[in-house]
Simulated scan of single mutants.
Amino acid sequence: MLPLSVLDLSFVSSGSTPTQALHDTLALARHVDGLGYRRYWLAEHHALPNVASPAPEIMIGQIAAATQRIRVGSGGIMLPNHAPLMVAERFRVLEALFPGRIDLGIGRAPGTDGITARALRRREAPSGNGGDDFLDRLQELIFWDGGFPEGHPFGQIEASPAGVPMPPLFLLGSSDYSAQLSAQIGAGFAFAQHFSGIPAEGPMRAYRNGFTPSRLGAEPQAILAVAAICAETDEEAERLASSARLSTLRRERGEYRPLPSLEEALAYPYTPSERARIEQGRDRLHVGSPETLRARLTALAESTGADELMIVTAVPDQKARHESYRLLAQL
């Protein structure tokens, strides 16, 4: 059986509110916990009207408390926005409260626009790295779990709560860079096929082939994040997918509007070029009946060598969204 997991961005739907989106996240987490999903990951995005997920570490605690067995984690914490010590301590607290159920997924992107990213940063990145200090922050985060080299100024500090290990570490990415870095340090790897502009096979295979065991992990853990919408029939699934397709089209134009209703999406007057763009994006949104998706997702997992699939489903109707995850679980 190929394990299934959930990636939730807490989508804000047209006519609803960000507050309701957070409550929808809690309801979906309880739903999939009973369906046997392995993980439930929360994303970090800032100042975007279409998602309500700026603080995954808060939602992780809420979801872990509201569920029984599912692992809960970040997909991810955008490390350039945070002091590594604060990340280490927050996730140690979560691990202490919910031992063996927490994952720490780390991302390199800011999860927002440039101005908001600047407002989030506790310090400016060294100019010599082109403004990118991700590797420095990642190394520091790892040191907070395993100890700093002798003579390091932070070596005398003990991250709180003492005696609690860090959760398993995963690097997130949509290119070869994070795949190779994850392999080098022995961390888990999650590839964002749902928005990446390149095929998943290359980075996923590169990660597995280049994996070096370390104290972070003895074996590779390769997660493939995919966008999928399932319904009883292919026709119904295509109807439900109209909202996600219009939302993606708008996002590519820089319009981060709430997820449109099905009525709005079905009535939208697409131009020929817009329809062509939607057709080009069909490889990144997997839509269909259970049997259609069984064949498609199984083939994708085999071609990429994925250990599990992490499903993100953008449907404004929460009942239909719950049903999509239920049908996928039955596969």
Rank of each mutant, 00 (worst) to 15 (best):
P3V: 00
S5W: 00
S5D: 04
L7D: 08
L7N: 09
S13K: 11
Q20G: 00
D24W: 00
T25S: 15
A27M: 10
V32T: 09
L35K: 02
Y37K: 07
Y40H: 12
W41N: 12
L42T: 12
E57A: 14
E57T: 10
I58K: 13
I58L: 15
I63Y: 02
A65P: 06
T67S: 01
T67E: 07
S74N: 12
G75N: 08
L79K: 07
P80L: 06
N81W: 09
H82V: 07
V93F: 08
E95D: 11
A96W: 09
G100P: 06
D103W: 01
G105I: 12
G105M: 11
I106Q: 11
I106H: 11
T112P: 02
D113A: 09
G114S: 14
G114A: 15
I115G: 01
A117L: 07
L120A: 06
R122Y: 15
E124H: 10
E124N: 13
A125I: 09
N129K: 12
N129S: 15
R137M: 12
L141I: 13
W144Y: 13
D145P: 00
F148V: 12
P149E: 12
H152Q: 12
P153W: 10
F154L: 15
I157H: 14
I157G: 06
E158Y: 09
S160E: 14
G163R: 06
V164A: 04
P167I: 01
P168H: 05
P168K: 02
P168I: 01
P168A: 06
L169K: 10
L171V: 09
L172T: 02
S174Q: 06
D176E: 14
Y177M: 13
Y177Q: 14
A179P: 09
A192I: 05
Q193S: 14
H194I: 06
P199F: 06
M204T: 01
R205G: 05
G210H: 02
F211A: 01
S214Y: 04
A218D: 11
I223C: 02
V226P: 03
A227H: 15
A228I: 04
I229L: 12
A231K: 03
D234K: 07
E236P: 00
R239V: 07
S242V: 04
S242M: 08
L246M: 08
T248F: 08
E255G: 07
R257S: 14
R257I: 10
P258I: 06
L259S: 02
S261W: 01
L262A: 09
L262T: 05
Y268W: 15
R275Q: 15
Q280G: 11
R282V: 12
L285K: 04
G288Y: 04
S289H: 02
P290I: 05
E291I: 03
L293H: 00
L293S: 01
R296N: 01
L297I: 01
T298G: 13
T298C: 03
L300E: 00
E302N: 05
S303R: 15
L309C: 03
T313I: 08
A314K: 00
K319H: 13
R321E: 03
H322A: 14
E323T: 11
E323C: 04
Y325S: 00
Q330S: 15
